[in-house]
Amino acid sequence: MSGDLAGGPLVTVRGVHRSFGSGPTAVHALRDVSFDVTAGTMVALVGRSGSGKTTLLNIVGGLDHPDAGTVVVDGAEVTGLDDDGLSQLRRAKVAYVFQTFGLIPVMTAAENVGVPLRLARMPTAERERRVELLLELVGLADHGEQRPAELSGGQQQRVAIARALAASPRLVIADEPTGQLDAETGLSVMALLRGVVESEGVTVLVSTHDPVMMALADRVMRMHDGQVDP
């Protein structure tokens, strides 16, 4: 189903509802959210804590299920996929960049970058070349054998971005990627993501509070009380 969608919507979200709990104490995290994300763009999702940004990203990435509504990513209806289908979607089309980097602490930077390539069972030599390229892309060619604990926060997030790009996904979902970084480091990470959108042609859906990030985005969507502001 992944047709040539350049310029068209890569992500289509329609009428998504998600609530946690039930009865009077239920929390409505998302209320009738609908939007499109054009392929090859960088969309910033902004809003206060508790506005539903992370819930929305998890649903788009197939980590969570909406109570109602549909999500289509690169032609695949995420809400209709089973567990294995969702895993396959994340493995092939969607990559995550977590606020806390999400690196596997016992692996080196190079091994972390190689995780999606191992999942794709890429031959070893080809994998090693790709990892080398990606580390070079994020400016960490000399840090491949270091473990996350031996890297700075910015370096760790660069490794996370390299890992996200490793399997050439169509969509990168980044949940507050600069949340734990100082301003300068955050800016460099955002610049890297922006560069990736332009050089690799991937689509980036990023949640952030960072005004600089908003400035680098092609489009800014504001969330408020579980809804996307028009």
Binding site: L63, D84, S87, R90, R91, G102, P116, A167
Partner: peptide, 13 residues
Amino acid sequence: VEVARLRGLGMYR
């Protein structure tokens, strides 16, 4: 959390 992230990376259960 680490295991949840592995799911996020596309690992099957």
